[in-house]
C-alpha cells in the first residue's frame, strides 16, 4: 500500500502555557503568568540552554496577554541579521512586549541605544517586558552601561535543565499534543541511542509525527528504529 503523504504543518504544536511541559520550571511559568496577569513583576529575563522552552514561554506569554485583551508583541532576534531599528517604533505602546534571543543586539551600538530608548518609554508606561537569552544579563556583551544595568533590574529566571526522567515525560507530553503516543520505553531508547539535546528531540518529534501519520502505525520500538535508520542524525 502506498504511503499516505501527510500535510506539512510547521510547528503545529500550540505555544500556550497549557502546552508547555513545566517539569522543574513551574516557577518560571507562575512568574510569567503573574507578570502578564498584572500582579507580578514588570520585567522578566529568562535564560537557559537551547531547547528548554524559552521561545515557547515567550509566545505563551504573548498568547495569554492577547486572551486578557492586552496589546502584545513578540519578536525573535537572530544573530545573523538584526532587523531595521524601526521595528521598535510604536512598541512602547504595547502592554506586553516579548523579545527572544536578546543577546543578538549586544554589541550593536545602534540597537543598544534604540532598545534603551524603547525600554525607558515602555517602562515609564508601567508595561510588561519579557526577554529571553542564552545567558544571564550580566554575561551579555552590552557596551551601553545604562542598558546593562536595566537588563539586570527585573526578575531573572534560569530555566533548569530537565533530568532524563523528565525529558521522557516531556517527550510523551509533546507527542500527545501532536496526536501520537511515545511510551516510556521508546522515550528511553531515544535518549540512550539517539540524542539528548532537547531542541534536536523536538525536531525529531515532528519527523516521527509525519512518519506515524504516513504509515498509519503506532510508534513502537521497531518502527522507531526503522524511521531513524532512514535518516541518522
Amino acid at each position: 500500500m502506498a504511503e499516505q503523504i501527510p500535510l506539512q504543518f510547521e510547528h503545529r504544536v500550540n505555544k500556550s502555557f497549557d502546552d508547555f511541559y513545566p517539569g522543574n520550571n513551574q516557577q518560571a511559568v507562575d512568574d510569567l503568568k503573574n507578570c502578564i496577569g498584572g500582579t507580578g513583576e514588570q520585567q522578566i529575563y529568562l535564560w537557559g540552554d537551547k531547547g528548554l522552552g524559552k521561545s515557547h514561554l515567550l509566545q505563551a506569554s504573548s498568547q495569554l496577554a492577547q486572551s486578557l485583551r492586552k496589546t502584545t508583541f513578540y519578536y525573535a532576534f537572530t544573530a545573523a541579521a538584526l532587523p531595521a531599528i524601526t521595528l521598535l517604533a510604536g512598541l512602547d505602546e504595547y502592554e506586553v512586549v516579548c523579545f527572544d534571543n536578546i543577546e543578538a543586539i549586544a554589541g550593536n551600538a545602534e540597537w543598544e541605544l534604540g532598545f534603551f530608548n524603547f525600554y525607558n518609554r515602555h517602562r515609564d508606561r508601567g508595561f510588561k517586558l519579557i526577554l529571553a537569552s542564552n545567558c544571564p544579563p550580566h554575561w551579555l556583551q552590552v557596551a551601553l552601561p545604562d542598558l546593562k544595568t536595566r537588563l539586570n533590574w527585573g526578575l531573572t529566571i534560569k530555566l533548569k535543565d530537565l533530568p532524563d526522567a523528565e525529558r521522557i515525560k516531556a517527550l510523551s507530553y509533546k507527542a500527545r499534543q501532536m496526536g501520537f503516543d511515545i511510551s516510556p520505553n521508546v522515550g528511553r531508547f531515544l535518549l540512550n541511542h539517539y540524542v539528548r539535546d532537547l531542541s534536536a528531540l523536538w525536531e525529531l518529534l515532528e519527523r516521527l509525527d509525519r512518519a506515524t501519520l504516513a504509515a498509519k502505525r503506532k510508534l513502537t520500538l521497531p518502527f522507531l528504529k526503522e524511521v531513524l535508520s532512514k535518516h541518522e542524525p
Binding site: H11, V13, N14, K15, S55, L58, Q59, S62, Q63, Q66, T72, F73, Y74, Y75, A76, C98
Partner: peptide, 9 residues
C-alpha cells in the same frame, strides 16, 4: 506559532 506571534497577534 512564531510567525503568528510576531506578525498577526
Amino acid at each position: 506559532a512564531s510567525e503568528f506571534s510576531t506578525w498577526i497577534r
